[in-house]
């Protein structure tokens, strides 16, 4: 771990100011990913701006939805009675990720900003365009079991590892940020980026901007949601493929469909055409299969992760089936419903 200086901010303004003075600064909250990466020498900040004393821990009612303070921990959010009641999709997605210890420390803002788990990104012995722009991407043609099948570029095939963000994408949350240029709102779909030719940039945050809150819209889809996660062991593992599905039904007909995938792209993956295809269709397997086929038609897998295409297809169908049946997947019961 490199040497750095440390600033503990008391207000958002102080945090932004402390950051502005040091171009290689990083904000730190839970630290569960940043400290991890610093020990691997992947992140080498010159300054850490500790934001844990900022008054951003609350979860509040707002415009019929909920505002999640950026410092609310993953556990705070997942076990909040309002979140469990109205946004079981989000609660289940959070509980599908990491471990209890990590969820107790990790913050809402930090979850959005966690970096890929690509083996090569994490290993300074190998090149990586995300870590060292221009050095190359050995994941392409390499060990690519956990890598992306959608939205990849010739420079990067990394995935975003979050479970929570997949649910937030499906719920169309809005990210509130503050920075040197003031405050702004970023729709969730525009928060994370695809790698393109700048894989070093994970998000569209401007330098020095800080996440202050995540707003959950009023539309909550009730119980017609599911978060389905498939991984290499039954807990404490990142998703190979995950699906956040949410439906609004009118009898047996789909009125609105949301579908976001995790573990398959540089950001939570949505496909507007597939979601549109479902609207007005009967909530049954054939409809779900058609949507799934449409989604995976765009996949560009590697040899090592070709299985994810079929896995994603099947997971989408199952996820939508569960959402339609109103049986949100229980994280504790490892039997997938």
């Amino acid at each position: 771990m490199n040497r750095f200086d440390y600033v503990r901010a008391g207000t958002v303004a102080e945090a932004v100011q402390a950051f502005a003075g040091a171009p290689d600064a990083r904000f730190i909250a839970g630290g569960t990913n940043l400290v991890d990466l610093m020990k691997y020498d992947v992140e080498r900040p010159g300054r850490l701006v500790d934001i844990t004393r900022l008054p951003l821990t609350g979860i509040e009612e707002r415009d019929g939805g909920l505002r999640l303070g950026a410092l609310a921990t993953n556990a705070d959010v997942a076990y909040d009675a309002r979140v469990r009641e109205r946004y079981p999709l989000l609660a289940n997605a959070i509980l599908a990720g990491a471990s209890a210890q990590l969820r107790n420390a990790a913050s809402t803002g930090g979850n959005l900003l966690q970096r890929t788990r690509c083996y090569y990104f994490y290993d300074t012995a190998t090149p990586c365009n995300k870590r060292e722009p221009g050095s190359g991407c050995p994941a392409i043609g390499g060990v690519s079991r956990i890598h992306a099948i959608f939205g990849t570029s010739e420079h990067c095939i990394a995935t975003h590892p979050s479970d929570m963000c997949v649910a937030l994408a499906a719920l169309e949350a809005v990210v509130q940020v503050a920075g040197p240029a003031g405050e702004r709102s970023i729709p969730f779909a525009e928060f994370h980026r695809l790698p393109g030719d700048a894989p070093e940039r994970d998000t569209n945050l401007a330098p020095g901007e800080i996440v202050v809150a995540v707003d959950l819209p009023a539309r909550d889809f009730g119980q017609n949601v599911t978060y389905l996660k498939l991984r290499d062991r039954l807990s404490y593992a990142f998703a190979l493929v995950s699906v956040a599905a949410a439906l609004e039904l009118d009898g047996g007909t789909i009125r609105t469909a949301r579908l976001a995938l995790g573990g398959v792209a540089h950001k939570p993956w949505r496909n507007a055409r597939a979601e549109a295809l479902l609207v007005g269709k009967p909530a049954e397997r054939a409809s779900f299969q058609a949507a799934a086929d449409l989604v995976v038609a765009e996949a560009k897998p590697q040899a090592g992760n070709a299985f994810k295409v079929e896995l994603a297809r099947r997971a989408i169908v199952r996820g939508l089936e569960q959402a339609a049946a109103g049986t949100p997947q229980s994280i504790t019961d490892k039997r997938i419903q």
Partner: peptide
């Protein structure tokens, strides 16, 4: 593991379990 991947370092901070390996003491 020193990286939050095993839980051997788990302690209670204000009664809550966390990975002490990923916790900067100063914070």
């Amino acid at each position: 593991c020193d990286h939050g991947q095993c839980g051997a370092c788990t302690v209670l901070v204000n009664g809550t379990r966390v990975n002490s390996c990923l916790t900067l003491a100063v914070m």
